[in-house]
Design a protein around this nucleic acid. Structure first.
Lengths: 256, 256
DNA sequence: CGTCAATTTTTCATAATGTGGAATTTTATG
DNA sequence: CATAAAATTCCACATTATGAAAAATTGACG
């Protein structure tokens, strides 16, 4: 019943469960996740959980820290991840664009994608000045709804999907200053009107962001391209100029 | 019949099969792999194969190129890979060492691990001069037995395991100049006597390598740390000095 | 632009596989 | 050292995955 809503293409329960566990381990903190945690959060039977984890460890998709008796991502994940990033796909498609934008502006820029209810950083180029970002680094995630990089995607989904995600993430918004479901709805409306998402120092004091959606199938956005920069560097109309540059670059990328 | 020998911890056939398919896709060329290829190589039933692939695509561990009708690694893999590299594990453990060695020597250095019958590059630092390497980049693999980075590991496995791997890889050696099972056995013997593995221009003309095993559990090596450099830069005794430096650095890493 | 072969996708009866309760062993705690 | 908690193993059972075959889709060629 309260099983994951994910893909649910019938005929692979075991695989679905394995992915749930992979996800829990991947999102677990630096201290790793124990079997007990995993059974508790996933709701899976202890024996089942244990069996799946053992198999994943055997294949090195996970690794077990025998000392701390906990699980973390394994070497095979790192290897396949590196290949996924180099091989064909969105990362490679935008590689040149990211490098070019970085060269032209000197600012921090990132490519985000949606994964479930999160907005995840797939690639980035660090700017000349080090700026704090919501996602921290490649692989980092925030709740969809937090930050322009994620609003740019959220704004271009079906309305019922938006609502579902906003409700699901409601509690997670609480840890950000002045953020709540209604604020997110407002940001979405503003973004659709403007054509791109912005934030000027509301989430991180002194830090601004501009993000533009990337449409992969028709009208739904599944990725976004955006800047993070110091508010102090902003001149009038700068954000709009940045948005235009991002749109130009996206237009140059095949398929996007 | 020629089912994978991998972990085979009972009770997760579906998961084992999924990993076989992931592996085939990950090792497939840049052109992606089609369903037909996957069924042919894996020996799995077409329907079964299709069902597993669909589920993996649903979870974004794989992605499907609808145009070319083929499969490649997905965004989730890239994300988890990035996290695996940043989180605790061998990559993080050796991160500082790699950076330090790079600064001290200016040469190309890499961290290799064993995965099945392959030696895979987990991390590297590029040297001042660009040198061609067997594995190309992070995530790149060669057959165990090819190159000092892989010989350093192979030399410190159980003898029956060595033999099994050498036989399994025999045909793959053929694509390298003067390489064959007996040559590999010779290289292993030399390495055990010397304490580290070397190659001076035999595999790639003008390019030399030195590698030292990393012992993670007792006497068996599961990783190696090594240099790739220009033969022209070699002075008498240089390789030995390099090996000493590598051993020193490994000794400094906790657990290794 | 219609025909045929190759490949992909769906279906469904069957049995092999994964399941989870309970027993056992190992590890942590005071 | 005793006790609790967590991890691991076991196994009878039925839910789940399987694969043969049919249907649908795609691509190639005339």
């Amino acid at each position: 019943m309260p099983e994951a809503k994910h893909s649910s293409s019938t005929g692979a329960q075991l695989l679905d469960r394995a992915v749930i566990l992979l996800d829990l381990v991947a999102n677990g903190g630096v201290n790793g996740v124990t079997l007990k945690d995993l059974t508790a959060v996933s709701g899976l039977n202890t024996a089942t959980c244990h069996r799946i984890l053992n198999t994943l460890v055997g294949h090195k998709l996970l690794a077990r820290d025998d000392k701390k008796r906990c699980y973390r991502l394994g070497a095979r994940m790192a290897i396949y991840g590196a290949r996924a990033a180099r091989g064909p796909g969105i990362i490679s498609s935008y590689d040149a664009a990211l490098t070019r934008i970085r060269r032209r502006t000197g600012d921090t820029i990132h490519l985000m994608v949606r994964l479930n209810h999160d907005s995840v950083c797939l690639d980035r180029r660090d700017g000349e000045c080090v700026v704090p970002t919501l996602t921290g680094s490649i692989g980092g995630a925030v709740a969809l709804g937090v930050g322009p990089g994620s609003i740019a995607m959220l704004a271009y989904l079906d309305e019922d999907e938006q609502e579902f995600i906003i409700r699901a993430n409601a509690e997670r918004y609480a840890s950000y200053r002045d953020l709540n479901p209604d604020k997110v709805r407002k940001l979405i409306a503003d973004t659709r009107e403007r054509g791109y998402a912005i934030d000027v120092g509301e989430l991180i004091p002194g830090i601004a962001g501009v993000s533009v959606p990337i449409f992969t199938d028709g009208t739904k956005a599944s990725a976004s391209l955006g800047f993070t920069l110091l508010c102090a560097k902003l001149t009038p109309g700068a954000l709009h100029q940045y948005a235009l540059m991002l749109k130009e670059e996206i237009a140059l990328v095949p398929h996007g």
